[in-house]
């Protein structure tokens, strides 16, 4: 995982009351601001609406510049699965995302714990190393890593992308550490006085408190892997049965000689899970934010 994902800390924080504004604001300003926001909203939503409409069109209509479907073809979504092994690609994407997320948590949480809640020599050096790894463009080291996986006979599969998460993911370590720092030391101290070992403290005290952080980090990982294109392209391009939806979608038009309506139906299908996940996960963001307050 790279530095591309940044915490969405304030997605749902409520703005503090602004008494100052309330009294002095003119109605005119209010209207101006809302119309700007609505106009922007329309522009921003337009692409999503337009591709969704296209997904329902007949193939003939996509060659015209008509924006509204003349007839609604729900069957396009079914056709996507017939034309290409989309179901297999979906399964692969789910496997890549779920396993990566689980592996990342198992390895990164302990590291983040050690980096935030324990005092030891070299800690700051390790932290700098974490940040440097997080910032390293994946293309820099891609050749030796590819060769390594080729020697292990694992290219052509998604394992070269999943397995490294067992050995810690720099961005997740960093993010979890930032969250964990904000949990007051008193919780740990109290448990220590009771004679708990560090591992017991981590397991019984800190993990329950860090649930929102774990949720947020998992979501970032899930999003990153679901959206990843470079990794699956590099490792699985010659094995279409191991493609993820991102790779499959990118080559859908040229490889399966399909029209835009089916491409758009597939595009909608790939976008849908992340959008659904986002609406379900909003609460995790809220809790993560209120508990940790990692912001400016």
């Amino acid at each position: 995982m790279t530095a591309t994902q940044l915490p969405l800390t304030a997605v749902t924080t409520t703005p503090p009351e602004r008494r100052r504004a309330r009294t002095r604001r003119s109605l005119l300003l209010d209207v101006a601001e809302h119309s700007t926001a609505i106009a922007l909203g329309v522009i921003i939503l337009a692409p999503i609406v337009l591709i969704t409409l296209t997904a329902f069109m007949s193939s003939g209509q996509t060659l015209t510049s008509n924006l509204w479907p003349q007839s609604w073809h729900l069957s396009n979504f079914h056709e996507v699965f017939v034309k290409a092994p989309f179901l297999t690609w979906l399964k692969n994407s789910v496997m890549y995302s779920v396993l990566s997320t689980v592996f990342m948590l198992v390895s990164s949480f302990p590291a983040a714990y050690a980096l935030s809640r324990l005092q030891w020599r070299g800690r700051n050096f390790v932290l700098l190393a974490v940040i440097t790894m997080m910032m390293l463009p994946p293309q820099v080291t891609v050749v030796p890593i590819y060769r390594m996986w080729a020697a292990l006979n694992l290219t052509g599969t998604l394992w070269p992308l999943i397995l490294p998460n067992l050995l810690g993911d720099a961005f997740s370590v960093f993010l979890l550490r930032q969250f964990l720092l904000t949990i007051p030391q008193e919780y740990s101290d109290a448990a220590r006085v009771d004679g708990a070992s560090e591992l017991q403290i981590m397991w019984r005290v800190i993990i329950p408190l860090a649930k929102p952080a774990i949720a947020a980090t998992s979501i970032f990982m899930f999003f990153f892997t679901w959206n990843d294109y470079f990794g699956p392209l590099l490792y699985t391009s010659d094995q279409s049965q191991n493609w993820t939806v991102a790779v499959g979608l990118a080559s859908f038009r040229s490889l399966h000689h399909v029209q835009w309506n089916l491409v758009m139906a597939a595009t909608v299908l790939v976008m849908l899970p992340v959008i659904v996940l986002f609406f379900f996960a909003q609460k995790a963001f809220v809790q993560g934010v209120t508990l940790t307050g990692v912001k400016g």
Binding site: L8, V11, T12, A37, L40, G41, I44, L45, P47, I48, L50, I51, T54, F223, W226, N227, Y229, V245, A246, V247, L249, A250, W260, V263, M264, T267, V270, M271, V274, I275, F278
Partner: peptide, 24 residues
């Protein structure tokens, strides 16, 4: 509501978003 709308596109998988733009 605005916040959710303005945030939504950043969730779109890059491949999907790029295909959408190439089409539009």
């Amino acid at each position: 509501i605005y916040r959710t709308i303005f945030f939504l596109p950043s969730l779109a998988p890059p491949v999907a978003a790029t295909i959408a733009f190439a089409f539009l």
